[in-house]
Design a protein around this nucleic acid. Structure first.
Length: 1123
RNA sequence: GGGCUUAUAGCUCAGCUGGUUAGAGCGCUACACUGAUAAUGUAGAGGUCCGAGGUUCGAGUCCCCGUAAGCCCA
């Protein structure tokens, strides 16, 4: 049996072959089944939506997921990975609407809801095949045969089950939030619609700085001097919201001043409160000097004077008179019309005091809610609270002066708008306030304001009914349990996610849509009775009652679809006998995905930890040990998983999470199909294969950093890492096949192997330990870089380079076997370590090795076990001295280079100054390696007694800093100025007392670093505390040996030129007049023969078909013949 | 507007709890090596460590304020 040899490896082809092999032999299934009974490692797949084609970033995201599942499998866990599809939601709907050329308004008119939803159902799986294809080709192991699908009936039933649990815990309620709303279109707008280009436009609105009159009470006493009138100034660009004013917000840390002045419209004396930083906007420096007595009504310059200063904190709680008292009630009088804190208040513009209308601004709503300020509302005919503006955008009757008027001029018809005496409502309000001494400043203000993309008219922020999950009730617990989750990177957990939890608002579940999970709540006609349905069985029971009551005619069938419009046709009966209608909302699709831990197994129980899956529980599959998804999911999937799990089951749903970054193009721009800079994953995989693609992505940047994807980088990974690994394997297999090495012999004990064998095995075991740690800490990039460095630097560029000869030279003896065994172990171990990241190529490497040795009983690396580091094989001291050997070799190479002395020319000796006992013992141990590597005959150690060393000294800052602190500079100067005698003294006595500005201080050896810097008269190089001197004198013998080596080299070239096989034996004839050449041939005859596989080497007087060899200036011709 | 991340050589990235000459790979230039050869070695060029302040004997590293890019949320 031979090791497989490759002519020109094609990595993509290898991957294809391996993929075939996996398929044919069910390797993925086996990797799970073989672990039956083992501890499970639970992974949750965040479901992608298959309504678009996959991109290169999906390769990244899925590589991350795959790596840890494979790693844990190697570590002995059973890792089930159920695939999934996210199928509901807006993107699907928009795509269908685009395809059909319809808008939302056409649904139910041009197309029935039934047909529409059918289209969505088809569209959502449109690219499933492409996704499955990518999954396979990139080597992402996930169960695609039995995925969960969010539109599946069972899946949706679990969602109802969970919603019912929220409902029963009193955590599901109907309320309102402020949402973008288009009165012209009569519909709320999604943030997606608001993000359409052209939505935000610059418009000029009437802006008013209104005067809110402070009430005189104990709380406001400090505002008043005598019987003046004091007003808070607040600015608004939406005057129509002023009748709904319920509070004024200030920044707690902002400074405010009270300014005594006159109202510019009524000329009445007033004192106004405004942020100190914004005073300049309203009061001119010029007017400051004017005496109050000189002021006459109508003067342009109005005198002013600062008469007090307050912090925002001081103002909080102060009551004021309602500005436009159309609507009030007891609750408002008790809680509203006072100053509250708002952390969004700034001194960028306005007055530093913000007018709060809780019914018409999201910030307003929240700030008011926090301060327990109710909104200004009236009751409609059904007794429900409604805002002062109706859904058409007109004031309600209670706002008497403006009843029926549109709040925005744009809502009037063009005709009305262009009438001669037409005035927009905002202007009318401004006029009224000016007359009533309630306006301090009225101007036109240009700002950007969102418009409805369908009607082109400005939108309103308007309170709309929604169903909420009361997440705020569990805020503390959500925060607390989040702290037990291992976030990668940690900052996403504490920062982005942690802050999000700290500032939690209730989760708005409602979506006014068609394609999604319907809210399972039915409400009676008078809205007083409601019921939440938690399962299909429950629904059937209610329908039975409804049939009896006469609201339904028949029971739903077995194939009943839980989607709209079918559920909308179900009417139930309330306890009091009323007909009940389903609340028309769908639920947020994030609830779909956040519920996947339960819904993927159709969980309908109460305690997910109670029973195994077989019996309807989730015992073995909840919570997840690991999930990974894009950082953009922080407030999406990560949050909904966490919220549902904590609120219903008081448990985290995932213990470790990687939030990976984006994949950008090589310039750092976002990839988009529109810009044409998107990388096609299929092309990349086809050209470079999945291994190089994955390796590049993982090794180049941490998954949580954005990756600037450069296809050249993939090529580099392939060349550098896979090329080197492949070369090493080729080298190994070439000679192992010749020698028939199959690792059938017993492993040679480490202690009996060479220094470099022991070293590479030591390095390998250190590697195993570190890589294991890196994977275990969810640091795939660290793992990849460690493996790569080992393969390239340690295994290939050092171990193989130094030991090449042992593989191709001489008998198949103990030493050779040790070399084969060491290299084999390295290759096999690397295959296992890297297999999670590059699953195809490393499976092939493993299998190629194992096919011959049969040392492991696994048909794939993915069925094998992760290596265990052998601590006994790790020898730190050995690694340290090899490090020294590398440094010394590098220094000698550098010296040779300077003197143009090629490595083939042997040199007599190098000298190394001895700094401590370690030097001698360490260097001695690796002496042969060094001599061999740099072609030197001897190493000589120089100690102090030689008297030739020139030393350098520098302060040990770390140590001295603690001791001397501020005096460091002087101490440092002192030490740098030491002469050779002083250095010698401190070395000898381990202490030296010197004078520091008149103070005697004692330094010890620990306070300084001494290095030998120079050996006068020799060629010297030093680096990192090691110094090497090179003897460049050539003796005749050295010269001859140099020539002999050159001859070997030239003869080898001839062999190669003539196409000889490695094992062919030859006869060599040489002819030269040069004495030094003939001497060299005589002296090194057997050496040359051995090196060149020659049976015979002779000097002749003439050659029939000799070839000229060019060695330095010497003339030689040579002829070789195969024996 | 708020939160978070990133910024180090032409490019991609290291740089641990602060320690004085900031590293690697790729790319570029020159030389060497040549039974691993589309490999390898050595050397060279290339840095306001995004900017400004501060803490410190000492800052790429810590603090503050900015700038730019990106993501999420308003």
């Amino acid at each position: 049996m031979k090791y497989r040899e490759y002519k020109n490896i094609n990595y993509a082809e290898v991957a294809d072959e391996v993929l075939e092999f996996w398929k044919k032999n069910d390797i993925f299934k086996k990797s799970v089944d073989e672990k039956e009974g083992a501890e499970s490692f639970v992974f949750y797949e965040g479901p992608p939506s298959a309504n678009g084609t996959p991109g290169i970033h999906h390769v990244m995201a899925r590589a991350v997921k795959d790596i840890f599942c494979r790693y844990k499998t190697l570590k002995g866990y059973q890792v089930n990975r159920k695939g999934g599809w996210d199928t509901h939601g807006l993107p699907v709907e928009l795509q269908v609407e685009k395809e059909l050329g319809i808008t939302k308004e056409d649904i139910g008119k041009k197309i029935s809801v039934e047909e529409y939803n059918q289209k969505c159902r088809e569209a959502v799986m449109k690219f499933k095949n492409e996704w499955d294809d990518l999954t396979e080709k990139m080597g992402y192991w996930v169960d695609l045969d039995d995925p969960y699908i969010t539109f599946d009936k069972n899946y949706m039933e679990t969602l109802w089950h969970l919603l019912k649990k929220f409902y029963d815990k009193d955590l599901l309620y109907k309320g309102y939030t402020i949402q973008p709303y288009s009165p012209a279109a009569g519909t709320g707008l999604s943030s997606h619609e608001l993000n359409q280009p052209g939505t935000y436009r610059d418009v000029k609105d009437t802006s008013i700085v209104a005067q809110f009159k402070a009430k005189k009470t104990d709380a406001t006493a400090k505002l008043f001097d005598g019987d003046e009138e004091v007003f808070f100034l607040a600015w608004t660009t939406t005057p129509w919201t002023l009748p709904s004013n319920a509070a004024l917000a200030v920044g707690k840390k902002i400074s405010y001043v009270k300014v005594k002045t006159f109202n510019p419209y009524t000329f009445l004396p007033v004192s106004v409160i405004v942020a100190k930083d914004l005073m300049g906007k309203y009061f001119s420096e010029k007017a400051k000097e004017i005496a109050f007595d000189d002021y006459k009504s109508g003067d342009k310059l109005i005198p002013w004077e600062v008469t007090g200063e307050f912090s925002g904190e001081d103002l909080v709680g102060m009551p004021y008179e309602q500005l436009m008292p159309y609507v009030t009630n007891d609750e408002l009088e008790a809680k509203a019309f006072r100053v509250i804190p708002g952390d969004f208040v700034s001194t960028e513009d306005g007055t530093g005091i913000v007018h709060i209308a809780p019914t018409f601004g999201a910030d307003d709503f929240l700030a008011a809610k926090l301060a327990d300020v109710p909104g200004v509302m009236v009751k409609d005919e059904t007794g429900k609270d409604v805002p002062l503006v109706d859904k058409q955008g007109r004031f309600v009757a209670e706002v008497t002066d403006y009843a029926g008027k549109y709040v925005k001029a744009e809502y009037y018809s063009d005709e009305e708008n262009s009438a001669k005496d037409f005035k927009p409502t905002d202007v009318l309000i401004a006029i009224q306030l000016k007359e009533e001494n309630k306006a301090f400043n009225v101007t036109k203000y240009e700002h950007s304001y969102p418009h409805c993309w369908r009607t082109d008219k400005p939108i309103l922020y308007y309170p709309l009914d929604s169903w909420f999950i009361k997440t705020t009730a569990y805020k503390d617990r959500l925060v607390e349990l989040n702290k037990t989750i291992n976030w990668k990177p940690a900052s996403t957990g504490t920062g982005r996610f942690g802050n999000w939890l700290e500032n939690l608002v209730d989760w708005n579940l409602s979506r006014s849509r068609y394609w999604g999970t319907p809210l399972p709540i039915w409400v009676s006609e008078d809205k007083t009775e409601e019921i939440c349905i938690g399962s299909i069985a429950e629904l059937k029971v209610e329908i039975e009652k409804s049939i009896t009551a006469g609201y339904m005619t028949e029971q739903i069938g077995e194939d009943f679809d839980l989607h709209r419009p079918y559920v909308d046709d179900v009417f139930l009966v309330s306890a009091s006998g009323q007909k009940m209608y389903r609340e028309p909302d769908l639920i947020d699709v994030w609830f779909d995905s956040g519920a996947m831990p339960y819904a993927q197994f159709h969980f309908m129980g109460d305690d997910p930890k109670a029973d195994p899956v077989k019996e309807g529980g989730l015992k073995e599959v909840y919570p997840a040990n690991f999930i990974a998804e894009g950082v953009d999911q922080t407030r999406g999937w990560f949050f909904t998983l966490h919220a549902i799990s904590v609120m219903l089951f008081d448990k985290v749903s995932f213990q470790n999470v990687i939030a990976n970054g984006l994949v950008l193009d090589k310039k750092g721009n976002k990839m988009s199909k529109r810009l044409g800079n998107a990388v096609n994953p299929f092309e990349t995989l086809k050209k470079y294969g999945p291994d190089a693609t994955r390796w590049y992505m993982i090794s180049n940047a941490n998954p949580w950093d954005n990756l600037k994807f450069d296809i050249e980088g993939v090529a580099e990974s392939q060349r550098r890492f896979f090329g080197t690994l492949y070369n090493t394997y080729s080298f190994f297999s070439l000679y192992a096949n010749l020698d028939g090495f199959t690792f059938s012999e017993k492993a040679i004990p480490l202690a009996e192997r060479t220094e470099s064998d022991q070293w590479v095995i030591s390095k390998l075991n250190t590697l195993v330990k570190k890589v294991d740690e890196a994977y275990d800490e969810y640091e795939p990039t660290k793992a990849a870089r460690l493996i790569q460095d080992f393969v390239i630097d340690d295994m290939s560029n050092w171990y193989v380079r130094l030991n090449r000869k042992r593989f191709w030279k001489g008998e198949y003896n103990e030493d050779k076997r040790a070399a084969y065994q060491s290299l084999y172990t390295c290759l096999k171990t690397v295959a296992k370590l890297g297999a999670p990241i590059a699953p195809f190529f490393l499976d092939r490497l493993y299998s190629d090795l194992n096919a011959v040795s049969g040392s492991e009983n696994h048909e794939s690396v993915h069925l094998s076990n992760f290596p265990v580091a052998d601590e006994a094989a790790i020898n730190i001291e050995l690694e340290a001295r090899m490090d020294m050997a590398q440094k010394i070799s590098s220094l000698v190479h550098s010296l040779r280079k300077k003197e143009r002395l090629k490595v083939r020319q042997p040199l007599a000796k190098i000298m190394i100054p001895v700094m401590n006992e370690n030097t001698v013992s360490r260097v001695s141990a690796v002496k042969d390696l060094i001599l061999n590597e740099v072609n030197i005959k001897e190493i000589e150690f120089l100690d102090d007694t030689s008297g030739v060393l020139v030393k350098s000294i520098k302060p040990n800052f770390r140590k001295l800093g603690k001791e001397f602190g501020p005096k460091m500079k002087d101490v440092s100067n002192l030490i740098n100025a030491f002469d050779q005698d002083q250095i010698a003294e401190i070395e000898k006595n381990n202490s030296l007392t010197v004078d520091l500005n008149g103070e005697a201080i004692t330094l010890t050896l620990e306070d300084v670093e001494i290095a030998s810097q120079d050996i006068p008269g020799w060629l010297v190089a030093s680096e990192g505390g090691i110094t090497v001197a090179l003897d460049i004198n050539l003796t005749d013998e050295l010269r001859q040996e140099g020539i002999a080596r050159d001859l070997v080299n030239r003869i080898q070239n001839l062999r190669k030129d003539q196409g000889l096989e490695v094992q062919d034996k030859i006869k060599v004839s040489l002819r030269s007049d040069e004495e030094v050449v003939t001497a060299a041939v005589q002296a090194f005859n057997s050496y040359i023969c051995e090196e060149t596989q020659a049976n015979e080497l002779k000097l002749v007087d003439s050659l029939s078909a000799g070839q000229e060899l060019d060695i330095d200036e010497l003339k030689i011709s040579a002829q070789i013949e195969v024996c």
